[in-house]
């Protein structure tokens, strides 16, 4: 199932997005380019600030860790040299988590990470911050092989699927740029190199568009084929945004 996204719905922020997928709901807001504190100012590039707010309570070291991961990943897609000495402020509020999230046996920061990355990207797109490329991310879980029901890989599993496939041996989060370059990999658990390689390949298939189908993909979304591929999903979200903005052209 493709994620649900609503763009530009907060009117006080420069860009915003609410993202819902598999019971995870995150509200993202982006402000920028705005004035930066003197001590954070970088002479030739933009400063990026990421704030992650958990669903319950105030931020803890876990959120700080996720912020660092997001910061490093987003820095490589925001075209920082084109807006030097400014600040891009990204705030991500986790709105709700599935009830089973804490009992899946997978680190909660891993299950949340792809959703946070997508929300941040959508909010950045909504704020029209210059980006050098887009980003898509996916979670892959490998259950223990000795359980009878285990399939080899769980691609972007829901919390219930994870609970059923317990025990999970390893979990991986991959993020790819629009050109298909790997931007982020976070892995947890025990796994062999072959397993990791297989997971990475499967993730690439979900995240990136098919080779040489760039022009073709443009026409494909019209037929409602979105959702199979995260790149295609992103395009359909942007198409909806453009249609919404240009509806005055066809209005009576």
């Amino acid at each position: 199932m493709a994620p649900d996204a609503v763009l530009s719905h907060l009117h006080r922020a420069d860009g915003s997005a609410t993202y819902t997928h598999n019971g995870y709901c995150i509200i993202g807001a982006v402000n920028g380019p705005i004035e930066v504190l003197r001590r954070d100012e970088r002479p030739e590039e933009a400063t990026i600030e990421v704030n992650v707010r958990p669903a319950v309570g105030v931020g803890s070291p876990k959120e700080r860790h996720i912020e660092t991961l997001l910061h490093n990943t987003l820095r490589s897609i925001i075209s920082t040299p084109s807006i030097p000495r400014t600040l891009v402020q990204i705030t991500l509020q986790v709105h709700s988590l599935p009830d089973e999230d804490s009992s899946t046996g997978v680190s909660p920061s891993l299950t949340l990470l792809p959703h946070l990355l997508h929300t941040a990207l959508l909010a950045l797109l909504s704020a029209s911050i210059p980006l050098s490329t887009t980003l898509t991310a996916v979670l892959i879980a490998l259950p223990s092989t000795n359980t009878p029901t285990a399939c080899t890989q769980l691609l972007s599993p829901t919390a219930i699927e994870l609970l059923r496939a317990k025990p999970i041996r390893s979990a991986h989060v991959f993020a790819f740029s629009g050109e298909g370059k790997m931007l982020l990999n976070e892995s947890d658990g025990t796994f062999s190199y072959e397993e990791w390689d297989e997971a990475a390949e499967a993730a690439e298939e979900v995240c990136c568009k098919e080779d040489g189908a760039v022009v073709l993909a443009e026409n494909m979304e019209v037929d409602g084929r979105e959702g199979e591929n995260l790149d295609g999903w992103l395009r359909s979200v942007v198409r909806t945004k453009v249609e919404h903005e240009q509806r005055w052209k066809s209005a009576r």
Binding site: I77, L125, P130, L131, S132, T133, T134, S177, G178, E179, V214, V215, E218, V222, L234, R235, V238, R239, V242, E243, Q246, R247, S250
Partner: peptide, 16 residues
């Protein structure tokens, strides 16, 4: 409603 404009994402190469 059909939009005849080409929709682009950041990083897309605009064909000649």
């Amino acid at each position: 409603m059909a939009v005849d404009t080409m929709v682009v994402l950041p990083g897309d190469t605009v064909p000649q």
